[in-house]
Design a protein around this nucleic acid. Structure first.
Lengths: 163, 163
DNA sequence: CATCACCTGAAATTGAATATCAATAGCACC
DNA sequence: GGTGCTATTGATATTCAATTTCAGGTGATG
């Protein structure tokens, strides 16, 4: 009975409490997707979305699960897993497969396409974008008769701190 | 008792039977590595190396295992797996992780570094090399304070036939 | 040709992703 | 607010590839 009102106020609050570019966009997109598909808005999904947006990094299911557990020990791993897949389906998260065998999800809020620099020592991930490289990729593909649908470019090395 | 002689003659024969640029290089590198590490040259390893070089493609452990089984049903999956890792350690094979969740090994014999074009329809894999892209990668990395150790560039799309 | 450390192969284990299913909880309607 | 339908949850089981284990087998060396 309280929940409907809580949801609304939560949305408003998040506009206030978060600094920088806020992601009510993501929340709206998520809710729109849910409504369109006849899915339900649940407490867990709200919490997971909140935590995911707050983290703002490249999180694996497990990392997000562990973070959530601190405040919400009742949320199960399977729910985190399914919810992240939901995020991917509705376009507010991008699944990424780096070398470590775990799927990581990255918030696609606001961000354009980009590639990644990964530190092999401390695990830091830096995003970058380079139109020249993209153009050359197109060129190479055309030379081989390919039409590119997507690509993956990852540069592995040591970051400034770890050299 | 017969085996020692067989090994020797096998090496000679493979020089004769294979057309094109032969990979006794790879075989030599492998043997050198084995000797240096006190590892042993076994029939299975010879057979697996032979088959691997003969295939000359991007093979997963399972694919290679299945191929081997036709002629050598006695060779176990675990042995193929371990031997491919050995190849990787001694530098005659490169492990690759494309999107499909399986590790593929590629012969590094003769080939310089290169990247891949992958057809999302028929699974064809084309190798390419582009120094301009490599140079730009270096540049981008430097701009972010990174020193690149390795990279991964994969272009996914439709090949000429599959458009 | 004996010895020993390495190797093999079947089976067990791991780790991440995903499926299962009974219990729970939204949501729409009364 | 109550009711029923249906999606969701969370503990657990399953899957699938990679990897480890271990008893028995087999190279290399003296």
């Amino acid at each position: 009975m309280r929940l409907t009102r809580q949801c609304e106020s939560a949305k408003v609050k998040s506009n206030i409490k978060m600094d920088g570019p806020v992601n009510t966009d993501a929340q709206d997109a998520f809710h729109a997707y849910m409504v369109a598909r006849g899915l339900k808005s649940t407490r867990q999904r709200e919490i997971i979305l909140d935590e995911f947006l707050k983290a703002g990094a490249h999180l694996s299911t497990e990392e997000l699960y562990l973070r959530l557990r601190e405040q919400h020990p009742h949320i199960g791993y399977a729910t985190v897993h399914r919810t992240l897949k939901l995020f991917a389906e509705c376009g507010i998260a991008e699944p990424r497969h780096f070398g470590d065998g775990q799927t990581r999800y990255e918030s696609s809020a606001g961000a354009q396409h980009h590639d990644h620099l990964l530190c092999t020592v401390c695990g830091a991930i830096v995003e970058f974008e380079n139109p020249q490289i993209e153009a050359l990729q197109e060129l190479v593909a055309r030379q081989h008769g390919f039409r590119i649908e997507r690509h993956r470019l990852e540069l592995y090395g040591r970051c400034r701190k770890c050299q």
